[in-house]
């Protein structure tokens, strides 16, 4: 039996995962509602988007299935950062998996407040800044322009020692420009991508299916788009890129790792196959083994190498 491949990943500032397969924000709650999942099989858990105060979320209807995907407009329903810090974090501290808190808000002060509240809290392994939520008023305001994205990242960087991921929106003309801006502002890694803004219309009732009208599209429908974003970002940035978007299988995850992602997050698939993260991790390990690759570092095919072959 060959030696087990090394699946560990470093995302900067001491954040080390034993597997590159994380679960994405909003698809795993705060880690407590997944009775079928062996948490030790996960690289990390990224929590539901967390705001300074509790939020009720949007009125139903909040989700809709679309071809090979789903729309959601949950509206950041969450119990607020104080509850997270006091009740959830102490439980996470006993878990054998890093928990990264996804941070959201309406203003710079919201993000700074959440980050400050969580700095030094045992059980919180990192922060992921959600500058890309399409489902609240102004949720995209920081993510669609390099300058506010950088200003927000700088402000949060100043109040936390935690590893800082910034989750980018694909609803932009130039995602690389936003990625570069947050890198320069002190992000340790970027997560790419959040959902695409989309909608569905109920033909019989002649109105949008979602109560909010639009929502965020996820699932296999967006995978080729996400993959291209990761391909561009990983060529342009020197910080790690965490690939997200429609990953259902190990082969999907490998596409992202080959495109240059240092790690991946599984989202929609968690709703369908609760064991997906383990299956994907095992599939990546088998691939490395079959191809006699000792670790993940050998996977990325750099755009330069591709161009050289063209």
């Amino acid at each position: 039996m060959a030696e087990q491949p090394d699946l560990s990943v470093h995302l900067g500032r001491g954040l080390c995962l034993r597997s590159p397969v994380m679960v994405a924000s909003g698809t795993f709650g705060y880690g407590f509602d997944a009775p079928l999942v062996d948490r030790t099989a996960l690289g990390a858990i990224v929590t539901k988007g967390t705001t300074p105060r509790a939020r009720e979320g949007n009125a139903p209807t909040r989700i809709a299935e679309t071809p090979s995907g789903m729309l959601n407009a949950i509206g950041l329903q969450n119990p607020g950062v104080d509850h997270v810090a006091r009740i959830y974090a102490p439980m996470w501290a006993a878990w054998d998996v890093p928990v990264i808190v996804n941070v959201a808000g309406d203003a710079v002060d919201d993000y700074v407040g959440v980050a400050r509240r969580l700095d030094g809290v045992a059980g919180v392994a990192g922060l992921e800044l959600n500058i890309s939520c399409p489902n609240i008023a102004n949720g995209l305001q920081f993510g669609i322009d390099p300058r506010p994205a950088a200003q927000l990242t700088t402000a949060v960087r100043a109040v936390t020692r935690l590893p800082l991921l910034v989750k980018l929106t694909p609803n932009v003309t130039d995602i690389v420009a936003v990625g570069r801006a947050v890198e320069d502002a002190g992000a340790d890694a970027v997560s790419a991508i959040n959902t695409y803004v989309g909608m569905a219309i109920d033909v019989r009732r002649r109105r949008p299916v979602l109560s909010r009208g639009s929502g965020g599209l996820s699932g296999p429908a967006i995978k080729p788009l996400a993959l291209h974003a990761v391909w561009q970002l990983s060529a342009a940035l020197s910080i790690p890129v965490v690939g997200i978007g429609g990953i259902m299988t190990a082969a999907d995850a490998l596409e992202f790792l080959l495109a240059g992602a240092a790690a991946v997050q599984l989202g929609t698939v968690n709703y369908v196959r609760p064991q997906a993260a383990r299956e994907v991790r095992d599939g990546i390990a088998s691939y490395l083994d079959e191809h006699h690759l000792g670790d993940l570092g050998a996977l990325p095919i750099r755009p330069a190498r591709v161009e050289a072959h063209v």
Partner: peptide, 23 residues
């Protein structure tokens, strides 16, 4: 009967209004 995503409480997709606010 509501639209439903995960069925186990993580996606928060199957909200139904509660008297006095919230879901």
């Amino acid at each position: 009967e509501t639209p439903m995503g995960c069925g186990v409480g993580t996606c928060l997709g199957c909200a139904i209004a509660r008297p006095g606010g919230g879901y």
